[in-house]
Amino acid sequence: MELSQASPSIYKEEPGYFRRLNAVDWLYALALCAAALFALNRYADYMDIYEKVILLCTAPVFAALGWHWKPMRWLLPLVGLLSLWAIAMYDGSLAAANQKFFLKYMLSSQSAILWMSALFVFSTVFYWIGLLSKQGFSGAGAKLCWAAVVLGAVGMMVRWYESYLIGPDVGHIPVSNLYEVFILFALITALFYLYYEQRYATRQLGAFVMLIISAAVAFLLWYTVSRDAADIQPLVPALQSWWMKIHVPANFIGYGTFALAAMVGTAYLLKSHGILADRLPALEVLDDVMYKSISVGFAFFTVATILGALWAAEAWGGYWSWDPKETWALIVWLNYAAWLHMRLMSGLRGRMAAWWALVGLLVTTFAFLGVNMFLSGLHSYGAL
Protein backbone atom coordinates (compact mmCIF):
# COMPACT_ATOMS: atom_id res chain seq x y z
CA MET A 1 0.00 0.00 0.00
CA GLU A 2 2.82 2.37 0.89
CA LEU A 3 4.53 1.62 -2.44
CA SER A 4 1.38 2.38 -4.43
CA GLN A 5 0.91 5.65 -2.57
CA ALA A 6 4.51 6.64 -3.21
CA SER A 7 4.43 5.75 -6.89
CA PRO A 8 2.89 9.01 -8.16
CA SER A 9 5.71 11.04 -6.64
CA ILE A 10 8.43 8.62 -7.79
CA TYR A 11 7.36 8.18 -11.42
CA LYS A 12 6.85 11.71 -12.63
CA GLU A 13 5.78 12.17 -16.21
CA GLU A 14 8.36 13.97 -18.34
CA PRO A 15 7.08 17.19 -19.95
CA GLY A 16 6.52 17.06 -23.70
CA TYR A 17 9.17 18.28 -26.11
CA PHE A 18 7.51 21.61 -26.86
CA ARG A 19 6.72 22.22 -23.18
CA ARG A 20 10.46 22.09 -22.42
CA LEU A 21 11.08 25.08 -24.72
CA ASN A 22 11.40 28.52 -23.16
CA ALA A 23 10.68 32.02 -24.42
CA VAL A 24 14.18 32.41 -25.90
CA ASP A 25 13.69 29.21 -27.93
CA TRP A 26 10.45 30.49 -29.41
CA LEU A 27 11.90 33.94 -30.05
CA TYR A 28 14.79 32.34 -31.93
CA ALA A 29 12.36 30.31 -34.07
CA LEU A 30 10.18 33.36 -34.82
CA ALA A 31 13.26 35.37 -35.81
CA LEU A 32 14.29 32.64 -38.26
CA CYS A 33 10.80 32.51 -39.77
CA ALA A 34 10.74 36.31 -40.09
CA ALA A 35 14.16 36.30 -41.78
CA ALA A 36 13.05 33.58 -44.22
CA LEU A 37 9.87 35.49 -45.11
CA PHE A 38 11.85 38.73 -45.54
CA ALA A 39 14.30 37.00 -47.88
CA LEU A 40 11.44 35.42 -49.82
CA ASN A 41 9.68 38.78 -50.19
CA ARG A 42 12.82 40.59 -51.30
CA TYR A 43 14.51 37.99 -53.51
CA ALA A 44 11.63 35.87 -54.80
CA ASP A 45 12.13 37.17 -58.35
CA TYR A 46 15.63 35.68 -58.38
CA MET A 47 14.56 32.23 -57.18
CA ASP A 48 12.79 29.29 -58.80
CA ILE A 49 10.16 27.22 -57.00
CA TYR A 50 12.73 24.76 -55.64
CA GLU A 51 14.83 27.52 -54.08
CA LYS A 52 11.74 29.04 -52.49
CA VAL A 53 10.81 25.69 -50.94
CA ILE A 54 14.37 25.19 -49.65
CA LEU A 55 14.36 28.68 -48.15
CA LEU A 56 11.06 28.13 -46.36
CA CYS A 57 12.21 24.73 -45.06
CA THR A 58 15.41 26.13 -43.59
CA ALA A 59 13.54 28.10 -40.90
CA PRO A 60 11.93 25.13 -39.09
CA VAL A 61 14.99 22.92 -39.67
CA PHE A 62 17.43 25.41 -38.13
CA ALA A 63 14.93 26.27 -35.41
CA ALA A 64 14.81 22.61 -34.37
CA LEU A 65 18.61 22.45 -34.61
CA GLY A 66 18.93 25.51 -32.38
CA TRP A 67 16.54 24.00 -29.85
CA HIS A 68 18.64 20.85 -29.74
CA TRP A 69 22.06 22.55 -29.80
CA LYS A 70 21.99 25.96 -28.15
CA PRO A 71 25.12 27.49 -29.78
CA MET A 72 23.22 27.65 -33.08
CA ARG A 73 21.02 30.32 -31.52
CA TRP A 74 23.90 32.80 -31.53
CA LEU A 75 25.90 31.40 -34.45
CA LEU A 76 23.23 31.89 -37.13
CA PRO A 77 22.27 35.46 -36.13
CA LEU A 78 25.93 36.47 -35.87
CA VAL A 79 26.79 35.05 -39.30
CA GLY A 80 23.68 36.69 -40.74
CA LEU A 81 24.41 40.11 -39.28
CA LEU A 82 28.08 40.10 -40.32
CA SER A 83 27.13 38.95 -43.82
CA LEU A 84 24.49 41.66 -44.19
CA TRP A 85 26.95 44.27 -42.92
CA ALA A 86 29.52 43.17 -45.49
CA ILE A 87 26.94 43.12 -48.28
CA ALA A 88 25.79 46.65 -47.36
CA MET A 89 29.39 47.91 -47.58
CA TYR A 90 29.69 46.69 -51.17
CA ASP A 91 27.01 49.17 -52.23
CA GLY A 92 26.50 47.17 -55.42
CA SER A 93 30.13 47.25 -56.59
CA LEU A 94 32.89 44.64 -56.33
CA ALA A 95 35.47 47.43 -56.33
CA ALA A 96 34.52 48.16 -52.72
CA ALA A 97 36.32 44.95 -51.68
CA ASN A 98 39.65 46.72 -52.26
CA GLN A 99 38.58 50.17 -51.11
CA LYS A 100 36.81 49.80 -47.77
CA PHE A 101 38.91 48.83 -44.77
CA PHE A 102 36.66 46.20 -43.17
CA LEU A 103 35.95 44.55 -46.51
CA LYS A 104 39.56 44.54 -47.64
CA TYR A 105 40.99 43.16 -44.40
CA MET A 106 38.15 41.24 -42.78
CA LEU A 107 34.80 40.62 -44.45
CA SER A 108 35.26 40.25 -48.20
CA SER A 109 35.01 36.59 -49.12
CA GLN A 110 38.74 36.10 -49.62
CA SER A 111 39.69 38.01 -46.47
CA ALA A 112 37.18 36.15 -44.30
CA ILE A 113 38.31 32.79 -45.67
CA LEU A 114 41.97 33.63 -45.06
CA TRP A 115 41.09 34.55 -41.46
CA MET A 116 39.19 31.27 -41.19
CA SER A 117 42.25 29.38 -42.37
CA ALA A 118 44.58 31.11 -39.90
CA LEU A 119 42.19 30.62 -36.99
CA PHE A 120 41.80 26.90 -37.71
CA VAL A 121 45.57 26.49 -37.67
CA PHE A 122 45.89 28.45 -34.40
CA SER A 123 43.05 26.38 -32.96
CA THR A 124 44.94 23.19 -33.81
CA VAL A 125 48.07 24.48 -32.08
CA PHE A 126 46.20 25.43 -28.90
CA TYR A 127 44.32 22.13 -28.78
CA TRP A 128 47.61 20.25 -28.97
CA ILE A 129 49.25 22.44 -26.33
CA GLY A 130 46.26 21.81 -24.09
CA LEU A 131 46.39 18.05 -24.69
CA LEU A 132 50.12 17.69 -24.09
CA SER A 133 50.42 20.10 -21.17
CA LYS A 134 47.12 19.40 -19.41
CA GLN A 135 46.64 23.16 -19.14
CA GLY A 136 43.61 25.22 -20.11
CA PHE A 137 44.78 25.96 -23.63
CA SER A 138 42.14 23.64 -25.12
CA GLY A 139 39.51 26.21 -24.15
CA ALA A 140 41.34 28.77 -26.28
CA GLY A 141 41.44 26.21 -29.09
CA ALA A 142 37.67 25.82 -28.92
CA LYS A 143 37.10 29.59 -29.01
CA LEU A 144 39.43 29.96 -32.00
CA CYS A 145 37.59 27.12 -33.75
CA TRP A 146 34.26 28.88 -33.21
CA ALA A 147 35.74 32.13 -34.56
CA ALA A 148 36.99 30.28 -37.63
CA VAL A 149 33.54 28.82 -38.23
CA VAL A 150 31.93 32.26 -38.00
CA LEU A 151 34.34 33.89 -40.45
CA GLY A 152 34.30 30.94 -42.82
CA ALA A 153 30.51 30.96 -42.95
CA VAL A 154 30.49 34.74 -43.50
CA GLY A 155 33.05 34.30 -46.26
CA MET A 156 30.82 31.78 -48.01
CA MET A 157 27.75 34.03 -47.73
CA VAL A 158 29.62 37.05 -49.05
CA ARG A 159 31.15 35.00 -51.87
CA TRP A 160 27.62 34.02 -52.87
CA TYR A 161 26.69 37.70 -53.09
CA GLU A 162 29.91 38.60 -54.94
CA SER A 163 29.09 36.06 -57.64
CA TYR A 164 25.90 37.97 -58.40
CA LEU A 165 27.78 41.29 -58.50
CA ILE A 166 29.89 39.83 -61.31
CA GLY A 167 26.70 39.10 -63.24
CA PRO A 168 23.24 37.60 -62.69
CA ASP A 169 24.16 34.77 -65.04
CA VAL A 170 27.32 34.07 -63.01
CA GLY A 171 25.73 34.11 -59.56
CA HIS A 172 25.50 30.73 -57.81
CA ILE A 173 25.68 29.07 -54.42
CA PRO A 174 29.38 28.62 -53.52
CA VAL A 175 29.63 24.84 -53.61
CA SER A 176 30.65 24.39 -57.24
CA ASN A 177 34.44 23.78 -57.25
CA LEU A 178 37.25 22.36 -55.12
CA TYR A 179 38.04 25.73 -53.53
CA GLU A 180 34.49 26.18 -52.30
CA VAL A 181 33.88 22.60 -51.20
CA PHE A 182 37.12 22.50 -49.20
CA ILE A 183 35.82 25.46 -47.22
CA LEU A 184 32.50 23.65 -46.82
CA PHE A 185 34.32 20.50 -45.68
CA ALA A 186 36.31 22.42 -43.04
CA LEU A 187 33.19 24.15 -41.69
CA ILE A 188 31.08 20.98 -41.54
CA THR A 189 33.82 18.93 -39.87
CA ALA A 190 34.45 21.69 -37.31
CA LEU A 191 30.75 22.09 -36.48
CA PHE A 192 30.21 18.38 -35.96
CA TYR A 193 33.30 18.21 -33.79
CA LEU A 194 32.17 21.18 -31.69
CA TYR A 195 28.82 19.48 -31.19
CA TYR A 196 30.45 16.27 -29.95
CA GLU A 197 32.85 18.29 -27.79
CA GLN A 198 29.91 19.82 -25.97
CA ARG A 199 27.86 16.63 -25.98
CA TYR A 200 30.62 14.57 -24.31
CA ALA A 201 32.17 17.43 -22.31
CA THR A 202 35.64 16.69 -23.63
CA ARG A 203 38.12 18.82 -25.55
CA GLN A 204 40.92 16.30 -25.87
CA LEU A 205 39.68 15.14 -29.27
CA GLY A 206 40.09 18.62 -30.75
CA ALA A 207 43.81 18.06 -31.19
CA PHE A 208 43.10 15.14 -33.54
CA VAL A 209 40.07 16.42 -35.42
CA MET A 210 41.66 19.81 -36.06
CA LEU A 211 44.58 18.08 -37.78
CA ILE A 212 42.37 16.99 -40.66
CA ILE A 213 40.83 20.47 -40.85
CA SER A 214 44.29 22.06 -40.91
CA ALA A 215 45.29 19.66 -43.69
CA ALA A 216 42.24 20.81 -45.67
CA VAL A 217 43.21 24.43 -45.01
CA ALA A 218 46.78 23.77 -46.19
CA PHE A 219 45.46 22.29 -49.43
CA LEU A 220 43.05 25.19 -49.79
CA LEU A 221 45.83 27.76 -49.48
CA TRP A 222 48.09 25.88 -51.91
CA TYR A 223 45.21 25.55 -54.38
CA THR A 224 44.40 29.25 -54.05
CA VAL A 225 47.97 30.37 -54.73
CA SER A 226 48.85 27.89 -57.48
CA ARG A 227 45.54 27.89 -59.38
CA ASP A 228 43.98 31.29 -58.60
CA ALA A 229 41.14 29.17 -57.26
CA ALA A 230 39.55 32.01 -55.30
CA ASP A 231 38.40 33.64 -58.55
CA ILE A 232 34.67 33.25 -59.09
CA GLN A 233 33.90 31.53 -62.38
CA PRO A 234 30.61 30.94 -64.21
CA LEU A 235 29.10 27.51 -63.72
CA VAL A 236 29.70 24.89 -66.37
CA PRO A 237 26.42 23.64 -67.94
CA ALA A 238 26.34 20.40 -65.92
CA LEU A 239 26.31 22.39 -62.66
CA GLN A 240 23.55 24.79 -63.67
CA SER A 241 20.95 22.86 -61.74
CA TRP A 242 19.11 23.23 -58.46
CA TRP A 243 20.22 19.68 -57.60
CA MET A 244 23.67 21.06 -56.81
CA LYS A 245 22.27 23.09 -53.90
CA ILE A 246 21.25 19.95 -51.99
CA HIS A 247 23.47 17.20 -53.42
CA VAL A 248 26.81 18.81 -52.60
CA PRO A 249 26.07 19.88 -48.97
CA ALA A 250 24.62 16.44 -48.20
CA ASN A 251 27.71 14.82 -49.72
CA PHE A 252 30.08 16.90 -47.61
CA ILE A 253 28.24 16.24 -44.38
CA GLY A 254 29.14 12.64 -45.17
CA TYR A 255 32.77 13.44 -45.99
CA GLY A 256 33.15 15.65 -42.90
CA THR A 257 31.74 13.13 -40.43
CA PHE A 258 33.71 10.26 -41.98
CA ALA A 259 36.90 12.31 -41.53
CA LEU A 260 35.92 13.10 -37.95
CA ALA A 261 35.34 9.40 -37.23
CA ALA A 262 38.78 8.54 -38.63
CA MET A 263 40.53 11.05 -36.38
CA VAL A 264 38.59 9.77 -33.37
CA GLY A 265 39.67 6.28 -34.44
CA THR A 266 43.28 7.50 -34.38
CA ALA A 267 42.80 8.70 -30.80
CA TYR A 268 41.26 5.31 -29.94
CA LEU A 269 44.26 3.43 -31.31
CA LEU A 270 46.72 5.62 -29.39
CA LYS A 271 44.86 5.22 -26.11
CA SER A 272 44.42 1.47 -26.59
CA HIS A 273 48.22 1.21 -26.97
CA GLY A 274 48.85 3.27 -23.83
CA ILE A 275 49.84 6.47 -25.66
CA LEU A 276 48.34 9.61 -24.06
CA ALA A 277 46.10 7.19 -22.20
CA ASP A 278 45.67 9.47 -19.19
CA ARG A 279 44.74 12.45 -21.35
CA LEU A 280 42.23 11.02 -23.80
CA PRO A 281 38.56 10.20 -23.13
CA ALA A 282 37.52 6.67 -22.17
CA LEU A 283 37.59 4.09 -24.94
CA GLU A 284 33.81 3.73 -24.65
CA VAL A 285 33.38 7.45 -25.37
CA LEU A 286 35.72 7.32 -28.35
CA ASP A 287 33.89 4.29 -29.71
CA ASP A 288 30.52 6.00 -29.31
CA VAL A 289 31.64 9.21 -31.07
CA MET A 290 33.11 7.15 -33.91
CA TYR A 291 29.90 5.16 -34.30
CA LYS A 292 27.60 8.18 -34.22
CA SER A 293 29.78 10.12 -36.67
CA ILE A 294 29.75 7.29 -39.19
CA SER A 295 26.01 6.76 -38.72
CA VAL A 296 25.21 10.41 -39.44
CA GLY A 297 27.65 10.53 -42.34
CA PHE A 298 26.29 7.35 -43.87
CA ALA A 299 22.71 8.65 -43.73
CA PHE A 300 23.60 11.91 -45.48
CA PHE A 301 25.95 10.22 -47.95
CA THR A 302 23.15 7.81 -48.90
CA VAL A 303 20.79 10.72 -49.53
CA ALA A 304 23.50 12.54 -51.51
CA THR A 305 24.11 9.46 -53.68
CA ILE A 306 20.41 9.16 -54.49
CA LEU A 307 20.20 12.87 -55.28
CA GLY A 308 23.30 12.53 -57.46
CA ALA A 309 21.63 9.76 -59.45
CA LEU A 310 18.55 11.92 -60.01
CA TRP A 311 20.78 14.83 -61.05
CA ALA A 312 22.70 12.56 -63.45
CA ALA A 313 19.45 11.45 -65.06
CA GLU A 314 18.53 15.08 -65.69
CA ALA A 315 21.98 16.19 -66.88
CA TRP A 316 23.26 13.14 -68.76
CA GLY A 317 20.16 11.05 -69.45
CA GLY A 318 20.95 8.13 -67.11
CA TYR A 319 20.89 7.47 -63.39
CA TRP A 320 24.23 5.64 -63.34
CA SER A 321 27.06 5.56 -65.87
CA TRP A 322 29.94 4.03 -63.87
CA ASP A 323 31.82 7.29 -64.13
CA PRO A 324 34.96 7.15 -61.88
CA LYS A 325 33.42 9.58 -59.39
CA GLU A 326 30.22 7.54 -59.21
CA THR A 327 32.14 4.29 -58.88
CA TRP A 328 34.27 5.57 -56.02
CA ALA A 329 31.23 7.09 -54.32
CA LEU A 330 29.72 3.60 -54.40
CA ILE A 331 32.93 2.15 -52.93
CA VAL A 332 32.78 4.69 -50.09
CA TRP A 333 29.12 3.85 -49.48
CA LEU A 334 29.79 0.10 -49.44
CA ASN A 335 32.74 0.56 -47.09
CA TYR A 336 30.70 2.35 -44.44
CA ALA A 337 27.64 0.16 -45.03
CA ALA A 338 29.86 -2.83 -44.20
CA TRP A 339 31.27 -1.01 -41.14
CA LEU A 340 27.79 -0.32 -39.79
CA HIS A 341 26.60 -3.84 -40.63
CA MET A 342 29.50 -5.36 -38.70
CA ARG A 343 28.86 -2.98 -35.82
CA LEU A 344 25.14 -3.74 -35.57
CA MET A 345 25.15 -7.43 -36.50
CA SER A 346 28.45 -8.63 -35.08
CA GLY A 347 29.14 -6.04 -32.39
CA LEU A 348 32.25 -4.64 -34.09
CA ARG A 349 34.25 -2.70 -31.52
CA GLY A 350 37.77 -1.86 -30.49
CA ARG A 351 40.90 -1.57 -32.58
CA MET A 352 39.42 -3.30 -35.61
CA ALA A 353 36.65 -0.72 -35.86
CA ALA A 354 39.14 2.12 -35.35
CA TRP A 355 41.53 0.81 -38.02
CA TRP A 356 38.60 0.35 -40.40
CA ALA A 357 37.48 3.95 -39.82
CA LEU A 358 41.03 5.16 -40.46
CA VAL A 359 41.37 3.15 -43.69
CA GLY A 360 37.93 4.47 -44.64
CA LEU A 361 39.39 7.98 -44.57
CA LEU A 362 41.92 6.95 -47.22
CA VAL A 363 39.13 5.54 -49.39
CA THR A 364 37.04 8.67 -48.87
CA THR A 365 39.99 10.97 -49.62
CA PHE A 366 40.59 9.24 -52.92
CA ALA A 367 36.91 9.51 -53.82
CA PHE A 368 36.89 13.16 -52.79
CA LEU A 369 40.21 14.29 -54.25
CA GLY A 370 42.15 11.45 -55.88
CA VAL A 371 39.55 10.84 -58.58
CA ASN A 372 39.80 14.50 -59.59
CA MET A 373 43.60 14.26 -59.75
CA PHE A 374 44.16 10.93 -61.49
CA LEU A 375 40.99 9.94 -63.32
CA SER A 376 38.79 11.61 -65.89
CA GLY A 377 35.10 11.32 -66.59
CA LEU A 378 31.82 13.17 -66.52
CA HIS A 379 32.89 14.89 -63.30
CA SER A 380 36.03 16.36 -64.88
CA TYR A 381 34.87 19.91 -64.03
CA GLY A 382 36.28 19.22 -60.56
CA ALA A 383 39.79 18.45 -61.83
CA LEU A 384 42.83 20.08 -60.25
Rank of each mutant, 00 (worst) to 15 (best):
S4M: 15
I10L: 15
L21N: 01
N22F: 05
N22P: 04
A23H: 08
V24N: 06
Y28V: 01
A39Q: 11
A39S: 14
A39P: 03
N41V: 07
N41P: 02
L55F: 10
L55H: 04
C57E: 08
T58S: 13
P60A: 10
A64P: 07
G66C: 07
G66K: 02
G66W: 02
H68W: 14
K70P: 01
M72P: 05
L75Q: 00
G80K: 10
L84V: 15
I87C: 06
A88T: 11
M89H: 00
S93G: 02
L94W: 04
A95D: 07
A95Q: 05
Q99N: 12
K100C: 09
L103N: 02
I113G: 00
S117I: 07
A118L: 13
F126C: 02
W128S: 11
A140W: 09
G141T: 02
G141M: 07
G141P: 02
G141C: 07
A142Q: 13
A142F: 03
L144Y: 01
V149F: 02
V158A: 04
L165V: 03
I166L: 15
P168Q: 14
V170T: 07
I173P: 11
Y179S: 08
I183V: 11
F185G: 07
L187R: 04
L187I: 13
Y193V: 06
Y195S: 03
Y196W: 15
E197K: 08
T202Q: 08
R203V: 10
R203K: 13
L205R: 02
L205Q: 04
G206Q: 04
A207L: 07
V209L: 11
M210A: 14
I212M: 06
A216E: 09
V217C: 01
V217L: 05
L220R: 03
L221W: 00
L221D: 01
V225N: 03
R227K: 13
R227G: 10
D231P: 00
L235T: 07
L235I: 09
A238P: 00
Q240P: 05
I246W: 13
I246R: 12
H247I: 09
G254M: 02
G256C: 08
F258M: 09
A259S: 10
A262E: 04
V264K: 02
A267G: 08
K271S: 09
S272Y: 00
L276M: 06
R279G: 07
R279D: 12
P281S: 05
D287T: 11
V289H: 03
V289W: 02
Y291P: 01
S293M: 06
F298T: 08
F298L: 14
A299S: 09
F301Y: 14
T302S: 15
T305V: 11
I306Y: 13
G308N: 09
W316S: 03
Y319G: 13
W320S: 00
W320F: 13
E326N: 06
W328G: 03
I331L: 15
V332H: 03
L340R: 00
M342E: 07
L344H: 12
M345K: 14
S346L: 09
L348W: 15
R351C: 14
L358E: 00
L362Q: 03
L362A: 11
G370S: 05
V371G: 01
G382V: 05
